[in-house]
Design a protein around this nucleic acid. Structure first.
Lengths: 108, 108
DNA sequence: TGACAATATCTACATATAATCATATATGCG
DNA sequence: CGCATATATGATTATATGTAGATATTGTCA
């Protein structure tokens, strides 16, 4: 079955739609990183982190490479960080607006 | 309960993580638009479209305004389009890479 | 006021996603 | 080889999300 663009994009956004996965990406900003570093950074069960890494892998946001016992992950396309940063921006703008409204409401 | 940034951002990405909602946003690119135009554009049941509009509203990606019988929607912050466009870009890059790999594989 | 149109909300059901626990795989080492 | 370590996978259960149909709400107009 042929997928339309909106579906593909929606799937890509879904891959970003989880706090733990966003934290994984945060950790990968400085470059490739071993699961043994990612796991304590993001917190939670090993198997859970592994599941989320698999989701990022399957949506091609990250790729992995074995190095001995360890597995190292890295982002496939750093443009993903631009997306995350822009969203950060949007969210902050909105939070600020909300605060302003609250502020002026209590000042009245 | 205090939400951390990663959660808020994840929620924002969730709001974009549905093809119908992405189509709604596409329709809103040219400016405010009535539900009566959005519904046929995106296709599907009226109640379903309304439901997805509600999701976009609750995540503050769009806002609505009543005009007589109609309800008009518009994007609250056009930066959301930059995000969608960047994602489009990422996805296309990846599709192209995949194609290239397939191409060179069959040429061998 | 009553009928109609546009949209939203509610309810029920189906499906998808997430977390956890148990287990499997792969690698390195004594 | 047998064991320990790092990570992945699978099964199960709980929860969230999506869809459709029915109904409610709000505004218009005769």
């Amino acid at each position: 079955m042929r997928k339309e663009m909106a579906e593909i994009k929606a799937a890509a956004f879904s891959a970003l739609a989880h706090p733990l996965r966003l934290k994984i990406l945060d950790k990968l900003r400085d470059g490739p990183c071993c699961v043994c570093k990612i796991t304590p950074y993001v917190g939670g069960e090993q198997s859970n982190v592994s599941h989320h890494l698999a989701i990022l892998r399957k949506s091609n946001i990250v790729r992995s490479e074995k190095r001995g016992l360890e597995v190292w992950y890295e982002v496939t396309d750093r443009k993903i960080f631009d997306i995350v940063d822009l969203m950060n921006n949007c969210v902050i703008t909105h939070l600020r607006n909300t605060q302003d409204i609250l502020g002026s409401a209590t000042r009245e």
